[in-house]
Simulated scan of single mutants.
Amino acid sequence: MSRRSMEVTADLVLRAYRHGLFPMAEGRSGGKLFWLDPVKRGVLPLHRFHLSRRLLRTVLSNQYQVTADRNFAGTIAGCATPLPDRMDTWINPQIERLFTELFRMGYAHSVETWRDGILVGGLYGVAMGGAFFGESMFSFARDASKVALVHLVARLRLGGFRLLDTQFVTDHLAQFGAEEIPRDSYKSQLAASVDAHAIWLPEPEPEVLEAEFRHLAASRSAQ
């Protein structure tokens, strides 16, 4: 279901997340936001993330350089950019302003994928306690958003996060193990996660990060 909101602030967004709701616009040019509370919620279990050997090789190669919180504005702008398979997005200027404010407040974070100094992919979301609410991702080059997602999951696992909320499940996310769970189950997981202690790690030690990537791929092989 959805509910209209007359005025949305960054603080209100944080309170809404705590109760399982999130805002979306009707479209890039839409002037109104809606609160969504889906009957089925998308989550990506951090302990069952699917990392293929092929993608592991890409992640470990020098094909892309990955950073976190380095270019939040560019990342959300990339997510709002129309693409051939996505001519419109739900990220309107108000959403951009709200999440940029959440970034300034220390709640929103981005993971950026670069090639030759150019931002070619990434994702952003909101961290509260041990929960990370994934908002959107984009890719202007092959595997660029996938590489960002692998980096996100590794950081969340290393930081002690318990919940990765994807809002919905797409074919893109399903290949990594994303699944739909009932609203009540989601809110139980949310309640157990949102006040848990976790640390956002924008720059883990490279050797620690690589070990986590290899662990993710090994866990997939053992499943």
Rank of each mutant, 00 (worst) to 15 (best):
E26V: 10
E26I: 05
E26D: 03
E26W: 10
R28Y: 11
S29K: 13
S29G: 13
G30A: 14
G30R: 10
G30V: 12
G31P: 02
G31C: 02
G31I: 04
L33T: 05
L33K: 00
F34H: 12
W35Y: 13
W35G: 07
L36Q: 10
L36I: 10
L36S: 08
D37E: 13
P38S: 04
P38T: 09
P38I: 10
K40Q: 11
K40D: 15
K40C: 11
K40T: 05
R41I: 13
R41L: 08
G42R: 10
G42K: 06
V43Q: 07
V43N: 11
V43C: 09
L44N: 09
L44C: 08
L44A: 14
P45N: 03
L46C: 03
H47L: 00
H47M: 02
H47R: 09
R48D: 05
R48M: 00
R48W: 06
F49Y: 13
H50T: 04
L51V: 10
L51H: 06
L51K: 02
S52T: 09
S52E: 02
R54E: 06
R54K: 08
R54D: 05
L55C: 12
L55F: 06
L56Q: 01
R57S: 02
R57H: 07
T58Y: 15
T58W: 08
V59I: 06
V59F: 07
V59K: 03
L60A: 07
S61I: 08
S61L: 06
S61M: 09
S61P: 03
